[in-house]
């Protein structure tokens, strides 16, 4: 009974597991806090862009520069081929991530 390598309570598997669980919760907490701090302070870039949008009277984000109807999505043609149906896959891959503008979708509900 004397010379046993008694398992210290801290090395008990369940305790390690609970500790890891705590660490995970903590990290998730840190993630949320980081997000909210960044959201409050890190707006300089966004404001700068909003300023540019106002100044240049831009209407769209410059995400998909591959074709004109993907560059300015909100200004797209009303009747361009394959673009007037909600499930259109007119232009892969941009068209696979994007849908046609809401207005066009509304006009074409009867096609569904």
């Amino acid at each position: 009974m004397d010379n046993h390598k008694m398992i210290p309570d801290s090395a008990r598997k369940s305790n390690i597991c609970m500790a890891l669980f705590g660490v995970c919760l903590l990290l998730l907490g840190v993630m949320f806090i980081h997000a909210s701090i960044q959201r409050r302070t890190g707006n300089a870039g966004t404001e700068h862009m909003a300023g540019l949008v106002k100044n240049l009277e831009l209407t769209d984000l410059c995400l998909f520069t591959e074709a004109r109807y993907t560059r300015n999505l909100s200004q797209a043609d009303l009747h361009s081929a394959f673009q007037d149906h909600p499930s259109s896959l007119e232009h892969f891959p941009a068209g696979s991530v994007t849908g046609p503008p809401a207005g066009i979708r509304r006009i074409n509900v009867k096609l569904d």
């Binding site: 209407t59 769209d60 984000l61 999505l73 909100s74 200004q75 009303l78 896959l89 892969f92 891959p93 696979s96 991530v97 994007t98 849908g99 503008p101 809401a102 207005g103 979708r105």
Partner: peptide
């Protein structure tokens, strides 16, 4: 064809609608 600002913003709502699309 007038396009109002709300429609522009909404376009991006649907663009980034992660429930839609091949992804």
């Amino acid at each position: 064809r007038p396009v109002i600002r709300d429609e522009m913003i909404r376009t991006y709502d649907s663009v980034f609608d992660w429930r839609g699309g091949i992804l």
